[in-house]
């Protein structure tokens, strides 16, 4: 019993931040992301004995979180238009130059199609390889690499084309 508790606490400590961030980029809502993470870890606790390989813990947890997120849509359909989905409230946005830049980029990331954003989040936050992302999302590796390419390409174009408008956005 004690060892299970220790394992669990170590798992939470090491991975809750990444999982929260991943959840946030899935649903764009801090509170929902928090709920998702809580649900995920609760399920993880119940099924902790089935986790044999600690190295697989992160992708295991992400799989649980994705399923939790999908279940949210089964339970209840949220009325969210494209516009609302892209709106990110960030109280720290005006604090400094870096945060303004982050805010602007966050908005761009949020506006990206889900199918491009998810592999990018998994790669940048999760640190997963193309193969790992492919198996997590049940896609083939080439599709994942193409989506990653398009995702970065879109962000690059956005960064290249819009720097002068940034001030207007936040001013």
């Amino acid at each position: 019993m004690a060892t299970k508790q220790v394992r669990y606490e170590a798992l939470v400590k090491a991975l809750h931040a990444d999982l929260y961030r991943y959840g946030y980029w899935l649903c764009h809502d801090k509170h929902i992301a928090e709920d998702l993470v809580q649900e995920t870890f609760l399920r993880a606790w119940r099924a902790l004995d089935s986790l044999k390989d600690e190295k697989a813990a992160k992708s295991w947890l992400i799989t649980i979180l994705r399923r939790e997120n999908a279940r949210r849509f089964e339970r209840k359909r949220f009325d969210m238009s494209e516009y609302e989905e892209a709106t990110i409230t960030d109280v720290k946005a005006t604090s400094n130059e870096q945060e303004i830049e982050n805010y602007w980029l966050r908005e761009k990331i949020a506006q990206m199609p889900e199918e491009y954003r998810e592999p990018l989040v998994l790669q940048v936050i999760g640190g997963f390889s193309g193969e790992e992302i492919a198996s997590m999302l049940s896609l083939n590796k080439n599709t994942v690499m193409t989506r990653l390419f398009r995702a970065r390409n879109q962000l690059k174009e956005a960064v290249d084309n819009e720097p002068t408008l940034r001030g207007l956005h936040n001013g």
Partner: peptide, 25 residues
Amino acid sequence: LDDKIAQAMNIPVPDGLYDKLILRQ
């Protein structure tokens, strides 16, 4: 660009999330 993306994605985690998770369990 990737550094910027990583920074942008690195949104702040709510305070006490860790404690909440342990408490719920």
